[in-house]
Design a protein around this nucleic acid. Sequence first.
DNA 1: CGGGCTAAATGAGCGACATTCATATTGCCT
DNA 2: AGGCAATATGAATGTCGCTCATTTAGCCCG
Lengths: 216, 216
Amino acid sequence: MTPSERPRRRGRPTAPLLSQEKITAAAVELIEARGYTALTMAALARQLGVAPSALYNHVESKRQLLLWLQDHVNKEIDCSGFGDRPWDVALESWAHSYREAYARHSLLVPVIAVTPIAGSPHTVAMYETVAAGLRAGGWPDDQVMDVVVAIESFVLGSALDAAAPDDIFDVPGDQAPVLAEVVGARVGRDAARAAFDLGLATVLAGLRERLKALAG
Amino acid sequence: MTPSERPRRRGRPTAPLLSQEKITAAAVELIEARGYTALTMAALARQLGVAPSALYNHVESKRQLLLWLQDHVNKEIDCSGFGDRPWDVALESWAHSYREAYARHSLLVPVIAVTPIAGSPHTVAMYETVAAGLRAGGWPDDQVMDVVVAIESFVLGSALDAAAPDDIFDVPGDQAPVLAEVVGARVGRDAARAAFDLGLATVLAGLRERLKALAG
DNA sequence: CGGGCTAAATGAGCGACATTCATATTGCCT
DNA sequence: AGGCAATATGAATGTCGCTCATTTAGCCCG
């Protein structure tokens, strides 16, 4: 049987079929169902029941779509600690939440790391919250962004690392004996997670020390 | 005037025109001259005076080419501190060198973060050196890779950050007043560099403290 | 010495994508 | 009622990475 072709209407529909919200939601659905390689403009249009070219009435380019996705992801990052908890505690839970979000969206990392935040309202809101929290915690204005960027760099690097296969460091023991041994010494655990936890704890300890030195 | 078509030979040449070294070198040249977007298989073949399909007798895929590039880049990272300097000093200069290398090759970051190192001899050698250095510095085997990965995550995240435009955090002051202020408070400096230096110093301080606690 | 195997090139062409464009249809505003 | 703007369609385009049949030349082996 010929599949009953859905009779697509030509021309302007009564109500717009597309919008930023619908497109972003469909993209998220697609990614969660079939991963980032499945996110093509054609597949996205299909998901929305629309011709590929129709998307371009609403989104400038695929790159812009990724920025919408970024803002969507950032909306889910937990900044709630800033305000009611000490800056270091808030920073820690923010970093954890941030890493988890981008571990699931590591393909976005190289895009967002390089894109101005101005067009992304939730992203701006997040930075505002974090910056205000650090300032309230006693950090001088001219170091706040350095702290934010340093943590963020670590978080995004760790998110990439979390997307790596578990055996990424496996090597024949005769080529690199020490490496083979220390790699072997960490099997069993979630290695990427352990490295992140160690790194984050270390940075936070260092930051506390630094702020104390500034104040004292 | 018709450009004198170089008479390409068909069939097997007397001596191979291509090899891993030549291809990698040509790719580096191309990237340094015209950036990563110019690195296409066609352009690379052109650079080598060869048909695009000829490349595939020597390299499996573009992805593999990028891995060759990774190994080439890693060869230039300075690990000389390990062996003759204290572990923390060596780690610091390694991190600096590492970041500089990948700031110039940030497109490789998402690729290498996810690719097993086994096929890349210089990369393996680098990790072996670093692992041996940390062990010699007193780090227990089961934490060596966590330290390495933590530093590496920070370095790669910072390399991405270094590729970002300077105005990435610029926002209208009415939308995010605190953010606008703290961003304004760091103009003039190389912001990405400052964040990296602060982060690295902080991590190193934290690591020293942690190792002391382990020993004591 | 000659015949086949293999390495290494060529060029045509394919399939996936993002993106553009002419065109069509419809609602809204004047 | 007329016209404009919004929003869809589908065909077409250009760029890529990559494959394949074919060609040529050196090398090994009988």
